[in-house]
Nucleic acid binder design. Structure first.
Lengths: 166, 166
DNA sequence: TCCAACCGCTTGCAATGTGCAAGCGGTCTG
DNA sequence: CAGACCGCTTGCACATTGCAAGCGGTTGGA
């Protein structure tokens, strides 16, 4: 574990930790896709992450304190991955990246709906989602309105619409 | 140039383009450090980017349409790199990454000041900075207040303070 | 009790990305 | 016309990534 950094610039430090093609994908899937087990992250990955890369990223994110791992009650074999507060606070970063990608990259409509809602909802919605994530992952107080479910519902509605005839 | 993407998710597409340890560092240096020549980016790099990596990133960012390259008037040999509109719109992403790194990584005070001002200024300030970047890089209408200069001045004040006797 | 399916995760290997140092041809300056 | 500088390339060692297969342990059904 090297404690040497290229510089003390906060942007650089964030990039040293998360500046690769997979770390934020994993966080995104846990955060919005509610995938909390290794196999879920592996099999339901939209982008097809490789198993060794997933194992490595989970290890790093655990070491960095962005995830914790707990036993799955009833499934003795292994664990549930859980977001920590720092990871939950990555939501604005993900929201901005989604907003940028939606505007400047060939994003598909189905997969853009969450980014769009997050963008339209703005910081107020981000706070609501973060509160729900704290409830789900950190055992915080339950949220009143379910912004996360709203995101999920919109996503599923779009997907159903796409699958349904004309 | 492969046109195949891992998925149409906007977050993923952003990561495919910018998800590495150096691309956003280069953009940051052009954006906030006003380094527009290869040599400036190489020599004044806080993080010490390697010359071949810099050349590669500039090439990729040009190909992706995030930078353009123009002749330097009076210095026939080579070029000035210039931000395009999509690159300028990365400012909110960088601001959020800076805000996160400032909170959750061992950021140094000197190098955090810009992130702090951007965070405190919020979206209104981001818009002001983006307007100035458009003026500087795209030849847009000149901005009234110089938010960029304000960032730079605060940065230099902190640096001078650190260098001055206590 | 046995066995097949599944679990998280590792291993081998080839391809690509990164870091470091040196070098290349062109240009500017004295 | 020589030496310093310019953007950028090259060579090479090492780390990271992507792909496919495999490993030991657990679970669940006959």
């Amino acid at each position: 574990m090297s404690e040497t950094h290229r510089s003390g610039c906060p942007i650089n430090l964030t990039l040293e930790l998360l500046g690769d093609r997979w770390s934020l994908i994993v966080i995104r899937d846990i955060m919005f896709g509610d995938r909390r087990r290794y196999r879920e992250l592996l099999m339901r990955s939209e982008e097809g992450i490789a198993s060794n890369v997933l194992a490595d990223r989970l290890k790093r994110l655990l070491a960095a304190g962005l995830l914790t791992k707990a036993r799955d009650p009833g499934h003795r074999q292994s664990g549930l991955y859980t977001l920590t507060e720092p990871a939950i606070q990555l939501l604005p970063v993900l929201a901005q990246m989604g907003a940028w990608g939606r505007r400047h990259a060939p994003a598909s409509r189905e997969l853009s709906i969450r980014a769009q809602l997050l963008e339209e909802g703005g910081p107020a919605m981000w706070e609501a989602v973060m509160t729900e994530l704290r409830a789900a992952h950190l055992g915080g107080p339950p949220a009143k309105t379910s912004a996360l479910l709203q995101l999920q519902a919109a996503f599923e509605a779009i997907m159903a619409e796409g699958a349904a005839p004309g």
